[in-house]
């Protein structure tokens, strides 16, 4: 473990953690941030401009936009965590099997990742989500299905890099089972996975919000930022606050994730440069 000081002098990282931390706090304890209910029907108070009672105004069902944003952080962060958990676990499983067993299975699995990577990302997610039907769970599944191949390839590459190292050879010599050998190798491949997770979080948030914006993801009355932008865009010129604030908030969260991702990624570059970092031919990296 590095000391806190090692990490904290990177201002990008501090800013990113503050931003993501704020939304994480909102998601964990929304009642600390607002005392209102995110989903009620209050037609008398609909589309009122920002005021002391409703900081960011109300939407077309009379709901407080600020409250819906606070509760919406739950939807977005929950989606990001679920997608990345599924994608990385699946990717680690496939990648470590592929890399350590090799042969035709490796070939088959890698050609499968090729196929998934051949689709434009949002389009594939959209197709899967549409076939599965509207809903947040379907969106999580669709986006996770989009992201696992990247992790599978990353882990496979790492496994290939460590499998000729001495500790693996020794494990093999003393007759450790395949599964046990994989278990020995995994801790060595985990760092790049973490870096990748931090780099991907922002894109996952954007993709999930895009699907909800298109009407495929979270369904009303679940508060979701992309969906809120879609609902608000018809009042854009007169009641701009309905669409504007959820859009801004989504943007801020994505920037927060990206700041963390870049800081962590640069740190990884510095640590590995010249040692295990190999420059792959970009023409094959697809």
């Amino acid at each position: 473990m590095r000391s806190a000081a090692f990490w904290m002098h990177d201002r990008r990282l501090v800013a990113g953690i503050l931003i993501v931390g704020l939304f994480a706090a909102m998601a964990a304890a929304p009642w600390l941030f607002t005392s209102l209910d995110p989903a009620v029907l209050n037609l008398e108070g609909r589309l009122t401009p920002p005021s002391p009672g409703h900081w960011l105004g109300t939407d077309s069902t009379g709901n407080d936009v600020y409250t819906r944003i606070v509760y919406g952080s739950r939807t977005t962060l929950g989606t990001v965590i679920a997608v990345l958990a599924i994608a990385s676990l699946l990717g680690i499983a496939v990648g470590s099997i592929s890399g350590s067993i090799g042969g035709w299975l490796d070939n088959l699995l890698m050609r499968t990742t090729d196929v998934f990577l051949a689709f434009p990302p949002l389009i594939l997610a959209l197709a899967i989500n549409a076939v599965l039907g509207r809903g947040l769970r379907q969106t999580v599944f669709a986006v996770a299905l989009l992201w696992w191949p990247a992790y599978a390839r990353l882990v496979r590459g790492q496994i290939l890099a460590v499998r000729r190292q001495e500790f693996v050879e020794s494990a093999r010599v003393i007759g450790a089972s395949r599964f046990r050998i994989i278990r020995h190798m995994l801790p060595n491949v985990i760092d790049p996975v973490i870096v990748r997770l931090s780099l991907d979080a922002g894109f996952v948030a954007l993709t999930a919000a895009s699907l909800s914006y298109l009407g495929l993801g979270a369904q009303p009355p679940t508060p979701e930022w992309g969906r809120m932008v879609a609902e608000g865009q018809m009042f854009l010129l007169d009641q701009w606050w309905v669409a504007a604030f959820p859009g801004v908030v989504l943007f801020i969260l994505v920037v927060g994730f990206n700041l963390i991702g870049e800081a962590v990624g640069d740190r990884q570059d510095l640590q590995t440069r010249g040692s295990t970092a190999t420059v792959a031919s970009p023409a094959k990296e697809k």
Binding site: G202, L206, S210, Y213, V229, W240, G247, V254, N258, L259
Partner: peptide
């Protein structure tokens, strides 16, 4: 560049519409 990469494209569309068309 943070702005360009982090901005949801559907929200960018709305912003540009407000500024240039509205």
């Amino acid at each position: 560049s943070y702005f360009g990469v982090g901005m949801p494209v559907f929200f960018m569309a709305l912003l540009l519409q407000i500024v240039f068309a509205g």
